[in-house]
Amino acid sequence: MFAPLLALLLAGCAALPGQGPSAISITADEIESGTTEANYATVTLDRNSARSIQSYRPVTFAQRFGEIGSRGRNSVLGVGDGLVIGIWEAAPDGLFSTATGKSVQVPTVIDQSGFIFIPYAGRIHADGLTVEGLRTAIEDKLKGKAIEPQVSVTVQNNASNSVVVVGDVAKPGQYPLSIRGSRLLELVAQAGGAREAVYETVVTLKRGHRSGTARFEDLIDYPENNIPLVSGDNILLSHKPRTYSAFGAVGQTTLVPFKTQTVTLAEALAQVGGLKDFFADAGGVFLFRYEDAALVRLLRPDLASSVSGETFPVVYRLNFREPQAFFTARAMEMRDKDVIYVANHPTAEFGKFLQLIGPLLSNVNTVNAISN
């Protein structure tokens, strides 16, 4: 009577309730061997992989926009620009001479058709010209009319070369680009900077049909991401606090906000109570995250041909049975939306099985005692 019952219970042992997959389920042979049937890559977190992760420079944001430079374009005049044209003559009885001097200042704006109007010179096409090009064009128009004219052009309002900065900034608004070229951090600084903590701020740049997002601190830590801007760019700063999740055999399954700029894996585990006694598999600590595809190819060269897109899901495995793992966990920094999972130890599943069949064994013993 007891043997058939035990066989039935053993057959259903795999269906016992659990906190998640076992360590062997995550690092199955077909995944470790290089295939991507599970649509994620597994990486053993050790000294070498941690060093590669730390030295990697996330510049996807720069690669998306960096090829479009702004230098040169911002020195070109456009519709809506406000100008001040200064005209000097060599004699006091010239066209632009007055009782107080031999010069005049003419304020003007480039109209919708791209022209400005200068007395005695008429309509002059200015849209698309540089400041020097417009200055030369005005002088040429005045030759033979004014006495040895000398002209200066000052840009008073660079409306045609501007960007919009909105969101969680101190002074949202429209800001002109400098003639020498302006970069992303410069415009954010002109707008008063981020209102919230830098490490909790995300920058989104919209350029035509393109858009890209980066953590504000990545613009500072990796200067390549501080890209040149072009006219018409829209910049949005958003307050997005970082969090990570912890599941499985940990002291507390919860969503944890970042309280400091950097949080290591060791600190993250400590904040959720560490590994749970009598349940946790010290060799089955996992970190789930999306990594840049370039980093995945660096960590797993055997998957280079299978990794596509800008990001790819990665599962890092850390074996706390090895002393070196504690130093690796101290060096590994957490990122926004990371997921920590600690698998149950196989003996914990057996303990559940014993708890399940314990009452049944007691009933069998009682029946046997009565029968005897």
Rank of each mutant, 00 (worst) to 15 (best):
T44E: 15
A194C: 03
H209V: 09
L187W: 08
V364S: 02
G66P: 04
K143L: 10
D93F: 14
F247Y: 15
Y120R: 10
D302Y: 00
T201S: 14
Y222S: 02
D168Y: 06
L134F: 00
V198R: 14
Q105M: 08
G72S: 12
P301K: 04
L16V: 03
T130R: 12
P119C: 10
A214P: 03
S162C: 07
I68L: 10
N161C: 08
I68Y: 09
A50G: 00
Q271E: 12
N234G: 06
G128V: 12
V339I: 15
K276Q: 13
A62M: 06
S238M: 09
T60N: 13
F326P: 00
G94L: 06
V163K: 11
L134H: 00
F96C: 00
A268W: 03
V155L: 15
K240T: 12
N234Q: 15
Q190R: 10
L187I: 14
Y199E: 13
N372H: 12
A99D: 11
N157P: 05
Q261I: 04
E148S: 13
V202P: 03
A268P: 07
L356R: 14
G86T: 11
D302E: 14
A38Y: 12
N365M: 14
S245G: 10
L299R: 02
T260R: 15
L95F: 02
S371K: 15
F288G: 07
Y56W: 13
V315F: 06
A266C: 05
V307S: 01
D93E: 09
D292T: 06
Q156G: 05
T311A: 09
P21C: 06
T243K: 15
L16Y: 02
A304T: 07
R242F: 09
L187H: 04
T347Q: 08
T98I: 08
E310Y: 01
L187F: 03
S52T: 09
I118F: 02
V166P: 00
G167W: 01
R71I: 09
H239K: 12
I110E: 11
V131W: 01
N363G: 03
G274M: 14
T35A: 12
V307H: 01
A246P: 01
V203M: 06
A304E: 03
Q174V: 14
T213K: 12
G274D: 12
F326R: 09
N48C: 00
G251W: 02
N39L: 11
A266Q: 13
A28H: 10
G274A: 10
R195L: 15
Y244K: 06
E32H: 00
I220L: 15
D221R: 14
L77G: 01
N319G: 06
V285A: 08
F117Y: 07
A293Q: 04
P119Q: 13
S245K: 09
Q355T: 08
V342T: 11
N158E: 01
V198N: 10
D292M: 06
L265I: 04
K143Y: 08
V315K: 04
I124K: 10
I227W: 03
F286M: 07
G192N: 03
D111W: 10
H239Q: 12
G212V: 06
T35E: 14
V339F: 04
A270E: 02
